[in-house]
Design a protein around this nucleic acid. Structure first.
Lengths: 207, 207
DNA sequence: ATCAAAATGATAGTCACTACCAAAAGATAT
DNA sequence: ATATCTTTTGGTAGTGACTATCATTTTGAT
C-alpha cells in the first residue's frame, strides 16, 4: 500500500491542473478582449471558444454561463475575513469601513485597477449587472450573519439585516454607473467613494 | 374640421384598448398559474401562449421577455409622486417613510396582498430576481434625483446617492427572502418590516 | 360597404445552454 | 514501454428564448 502522492487532488502542480488553469485563463482573456472590441451581445460563445482554441462544449465546462466569464467572485470571502478581524468594540459600519481599507491597502495597485475595470464592465452590461447585483445581494446575508455573531443577535434579526442592507446600498450607490456618471467621476478613486459613503452612513446620514 | 374624439390614443375605453388589456391580463394570469403549478423553468412561453390562446409571437409583443410576465412595475412612479408630496421640512428618510405609508394606506388590502405575492414570486426565481434587483436599483437613481431637487443639491452628489442607496438597501434587506426566511416571517406584514427598517435608518442605525 | 391602421399568426433563423457519447490525453501500476 | 483507468475534450443533436419578417385578419372611421 504505497501511498503514491504523485498528483493528489488539490492545487499542486500536476500537469493536468496547470493545463486547466491555462485553459481557463485563455478563455477569459479572449472573452474579455472580444467583448471589449465588439460588445457583449455581439460576441458569441462560439467566437470565444474559437479564439481560445477550444470547443464550445469546453467553454461551458469552465464557465457555466456566458455571464460568468465577466464576473469575478472571491472578494466577499476576503471581505468577510477582514470584517471578522476588526476589534469588537468598534461599531458595525466602522468595522466594515476599516475592513474595506484593509483590503484596499493589501491589494496591489494593479490588482485594484483590474478589479475596477471588471466592476465597470460588469455594471455596464445589463445582463451581467443583474447577475452581479444578485450575487452582491447574497453577500448581504453573509455580512448579516457575521454582524449577528458580532453583536450576539439572531441572524434573522431585522435590525441586523437592515444595517447590512444599508451598507450594501451605499456601496452600490457609489459604485454603479447607472445612467450618466461619466469620465472624471468614474476615474475618481473607487475606494475613496466607498469610504466617503460609509463615513456618511456612520454619521447618521445627515443631510 | 369636426374633432372626432371617438377613440384617441390614451387610456379611454376604445374597444381596441379594452381588448388589448384583456389579452395582456389573460397572458399574465395563465403565466402565473402555470408557473405556480410547474415552476418557472418548466413553463415554456409556448405553453403560456397556448393557455392564453394567442400565438407565441403575440406573447412577445406584450411581454418583451419571459421574465417581464412576473415583474410588476409602476409602484416607482407612485412612490416618486408620494415622496414629492411630502412637506419639505421633514428629513429625507422620514419623507420616504411617510410616502411608503401613504401608498400602503391608499392601496386596497387585496392589491397589497397581490403585490406581496408577486414580490415573493419574483424574489424566489433567480433569473427574475436578478432582473428585479436591477430594476429596483434603477429607481435609486430616480429617487436620488428627487432628493437632490428637494435638498437643492446636485443629482450626482455622492452624499445624495448614498442616502438613496441606503434606503434601497434597507428595503431590499427586509423584503428579500434570500435563504431561509420561511413561513411566519414571510407572512409578517411586509409594510411593517419596511417601516421598521426605515425607522432604524432614520435613527442612525444604532446597534 | 370601403379603406387605412393596427393587431395577429406563422415561418425561419440565431444563440445560449443541456445531454450524451466516443475519442484523446494524463496518470498509475506492472 | 505497455496496459489500464480516469479525466478532459470534441462532436452531435436537441430544447427553448428571442428576433425579423411578411401575409392575413380585425378594428375604427368614413
Amino acid at each position: 500500500m504505497t501511498h503514491t502522492l504523485g498528483a493528489p487532488a488539490g492545487q499542486p502542480g500536476g500537469l493536468r491542473e496547470r493545463k486547466k488553469a491555462r485553459t481557463r485563463a485563455a478563455i477569459r482573456e479572449h472573452a474579455l478582449r472580444l467583448i471589449r472590441e465588439q460588445g457583449y451581445q455581439a460576441t458569441t460563445v462560439e467566437q470565444i471558444a474559437a479564439a481560445a482554441e477550444v470547443s464550445p462544449s469546453t467553454f461551458f465546462r469552465y464557465f457555466p454561463t456566458k455571464e460568468d466569464v465577466v464576473l469575478q467572485d472571491d472578494m466577499e470571502t476576503l471581505m468577510l475575513e477582514a470584517f471578522e478581524r476588526q476589534p469588537p468594540e468598534v461599531g458595525l459600519v466602522a468595522a466594515v469601513r476599516a475592513a474595506t481599507r484593509e483590503m484596499h491597502d493589501a491589494m496591489s495597485e494593479a490588482l485594484w485597477e483590474q478589479m475596477r475595470q471588471t466592476t465597470e464592465l460588469a455594471m455596464t452590461i445589463p445582463e451581467v449587472r443583474a447577475r452581479a447585483m444578485d450575487d452582491f445581494a447574497r453577500t448581504i446575508t453573509m455580512m448579516a450573519e457575521a454582524m449577528a455573531k458580532r453583536t450576539g443577535r439572531n441572524p434573522d434579526d431585522l435590525a441586523v439585516r437592515a444595517v447590512a442592507g444599508a451598507i450594501f446600498g451605499v456601496v452600490l450607490s457609489v459604485t454603479a454607473p447607472w445612467n450618466d456618471w461619466r469620465g472624471e467621476h468614474i476615474n475618481a478613486d473607487l475606494f475613496e467613494r466607498i469610504d466617503a459613503g460609509l463615513a456618511q452612513l456612520e454619521n447618521g446620514l445627515q443631510l
